[in-house]
């Protein structure tokens, strides 16, 4: 692995030097411009910084395709990893609790099988357009309202209707959802449960399952949402993080892969804690 990482680290260092040079030049240029001198230095600084960032991103892509892909394939059965691809808008809207975005960025697609449970996932950034009318004219800006990872798992229970367990989202669907109160006060304080049929909510959310959802919330800080629909479990975690991004001035080594493994833990936790791998409820074919 070191033979692959070494040249990547060299390239990364070059990109960091370019970025640092660009940053220093840009700051100097701004100071010069403020004190009434030419703006050329500022422009040059910005261009150099831009080139450095582009090269850094290129190194990031090389790392993902040459090192991370192989690493993930070793850990996950039938693994498909594509850093440039992501879940499409339709798949994201299938959660039925994420708002329809005006802009969408989806990358780091990862699918496979863990303990016989199939899943697909990707990093997702969703933005909505906000238009402000002022005396000076109209101002349009795009505000991020979701930045995290979206998953879809096979779910082992057959059920009617749909159930959503949400930390702070609201259902975004035309289905006739009703708020359901479960027996656990702690659970009701942490999550709001919505269901098209309250029996289905109680059927899916067994006491053990509720405990597992609470444990997941403690283990993975962020805004969590779970949607049970058509024998699938959709999960969205809004933690303002990109799962497999490399950081400037941090060496590409095995420790970094260990950090990425921690990001993968949520997949293991969902499969294990929620017992998605237990197929005891389905009728035999």
């Amino acid at each position: 692995m070191d033979t692959v990482l070494e040249p990547l680290n060299k390239k990364k260092k070059v990109s960091e030097i370019i970025m640092a040079l660009g940053g220093v030049t840009l700051v100097g240029g701004v100071l010069l411009f403020i004190s009434g001198n030419t703006f050329i230095v500022m422009i040059i600084g910005a261009i150099v910084l831009f080139i450095g960032l582009g090269y850094f991103n290129h190194v990031g892509t090389l790392f993902k395709s040459k090192v991370l892909k192989k690493h993930l394939e070793e850990k996950i059965e039938n693994c498909v990893y594509n850093p440039k691809k992501g879940l499409n808008k339709h798949e994201i809207m299938n959660t039925e609790f994420l708002k329809r975005p005006d802009r969408i960025k989806s990358e780091d697609y990862l699918s496979g099988e863990l303990d016989g449970v199939k899943f697909v996932s990707s990093d997702v950034v969703l933005k909505e357009r906000r238009v402000t009318h002022t005396s000076k004219g109209t101002r349009t800006r795009y505000v991020t309202y979701f930045h995290g990872r979206v998953f879809r798992f096979d779910f082992n229970k057959d059920f009617k209707g749909s159930v959503q367990v949400l930390e702070s989202y609201r259902p975004k669907s035309r289905r006739n959802f009703e708020k359901v109160s479960l027996e656990s006060v702690d659970f009701n304080d942490t999550y709001k449960t919505y269901a098209t049929d309250d029996h289905t909510a109680f059927y899916i959310l067994t006491p053990h399952f509720m405990e597992s959802l609470m444990a997941l919330e403690k283990k993975h800080p962020g805004n969590l949402g779970f949607s049970f629909l058509d024998s699938h479990l959709h999960v969205a975690i809004h933690n303002r993080r990109s799962s497999f991004s490399i950081r400037p001035f941090t060496k590409l080594d095995k420790d970094l892969l260990t950090r990425f493994d921690e990001d993968l833990n949520i997949i293991y936790d969902i499969v294990d804690d929620l017992k998605l791998n237990k197929d005891i409820f389905k009728e035999e074919e």
Partner: peptide, 24 residues
């Protein structure tokens, strides 16, 4: 028999859900 065992597990899950919903 194996299919019936699967069925009874599922039926019992539904029974527990009904019982919990009723008690709630």
């Amino acid at each position: 028999f194996s299919n019936l065992q699967h069925s009874i597990s599922d039926v019992e899950e539904h029974l527990q859900a009904s019982r919990r919903l009723y008690n709630a």
